[in-house]
Simulated assay, not measured.
Amino acid sequence: MTSLQSEIEQRGSRIFELVDQHPESLFSKAGFYQRMMALSMRDEQFKGQLFRFVDVLPSLRRSSDIVEHLEEYFTDMRDGFTPFIHTGVRLARMVPWISGPVLRWNVSGMARQFIAGKNPNDLMKALRKRRAQKIGFTVDLLGEAVVSEAETDEYAARCLDLLETLARDTRGWSDPLGKNSELFPVVNVSVKISALYSQMNPADPAGAIAHLAPKLRPILRRARELGAFINFDMESYAHKNTTLELFKTIFNEKEFKDWSHAGIVIQAYLRDS
């Protein structure tokens, strides 16, 4: 094992130790969902079906459709969850007009654990809470995959608006731990690279970079002016090489090569990360 690999594993283990030392209360909403997620992760089949159900849920309009999909995804399960699932499905089928909205509410509640807010006020409320806990942040914008260049322009504009909002509302804040403020600015935004080009193709990285770089430069310029940090979000393995090449291309340019407040979000579990 290389010294680098050993150091990475040590740091990863330390992160998990710190997480375990500060669990959410069982009686809090976050604690309840945290334990539900941990339980679901123990079974690969259940986990897969759960995420399929969560993925399709927003498109289901009628309560009967929700119950129908619940039955379709979970009644064939053959594991320790089976008795509970079958009982739940039977009850849901009896009163779909009640069970449908309840299911939607619970799934939405779980999703909200990963979403800071729907608007700037909600966002800042969540960030102030984390700041009180001495936790920093990186913020990104949720959204569907873009299918047109008009949508990519809209996403770029939203990124700029987010930078302005965070810079204004965190004025006077310092690094949560009171150190490394030069290295880690308070305002940290993650940019979804594929949302800036609707025709991104892993087979044509040069073409993607030619379209992406002009969209990114105004965001990077404004971030530098505001003293913010920008992350390139590595959201898909298919776009890994393009994202890395894009990063190297832009930060080898004279305008940005001496600016250190940028990084890439990389999935550490990948061996070639």
Rank of each mutant, 00 (worst) to 15 (best):
L216P: 01
Y197D: 13
I8Q: 09
A111N: 06
T82K: 11
M94W: 15
G117T: 04
S194E: 13
E164H: 12
I135C: 05
M234A: 14
I15T: 10
N180L: 15
V56E: 12
S194H: 13
K134E: 09
S236E: 14
N241P: 04
M234N: 09
Y155N: 08
W97T: 14
L196D: 00
Q45V: 12
V191W: 04
E144Q: 03
L183C: 09
D169E: 15
F81K: 09
G172A: 06
L177Q: 12
G88E: 03
Y269A: 09
E72A: 15
R221C: 06
D175H: 15
R61C: 02
I230M: 06
R224D: 06
F51R: 06
F137S: 06
A156G: 03
A38T: 13
L163G: 03
S59G: 07
R221V: 10
F46S: 01
R158M: 06
L212D: 02
F84A: 11
Y237V: 10
A167P: 13
H261N: 12
I66R: 11
P205A: 01
Y269M: 09
K257P: 10
Q5A: 15
N188C: 14
A206K: 11
F247I: 06
I219Y: 07
P185S: 03
E9A: 14
D169N: 12
R221Q: 12
P205I: 01
L91S: 09
I135H: 00
P83E: 08
P23T: 07
K215L: 00
F81E: 08
A206N: 10
L226Y: 03
L39N: 10
E235D: 05
F74K: 02
I193S: 04
H22Y: 12
M124P: 03
L57R: 05
P176E: 05
V189W: 05
R128W: 04
K179H: 12
F256A: 01
L212K: 00
L196K: 04
S40G: 08
A38L: 13
R104I: 04
R61K: 12
M36D: 07
S236V: 05
A38D: 14
M77N: 07
R14H: 15
L4V: 14
L127G: 02
I230V: 14
P185D: 09
A156S: 12
D20W: 00
E253A: 01
P96T: 01
P185I: 09
G88Y: 02
T170M: 02
E9I: 11
I98E: 10
I250H: 01
L141K: 03
F229K: 05
T82I: 00
M1S: 15
A132V: 05
M200K: 10
K240R: 14
F27D: 14
E17V: 13
A126Y: 01
A208I: 01
D76C: 09
R11Q: 14
F74E: 02
E255M: 02
P101I: 03
F84K: 06
L39F: 12
A206I: 08
N231E: 04
F32V: 07
L162C: 06
H261G: 04
D272V: 15
S59F: 10
N119F: 11
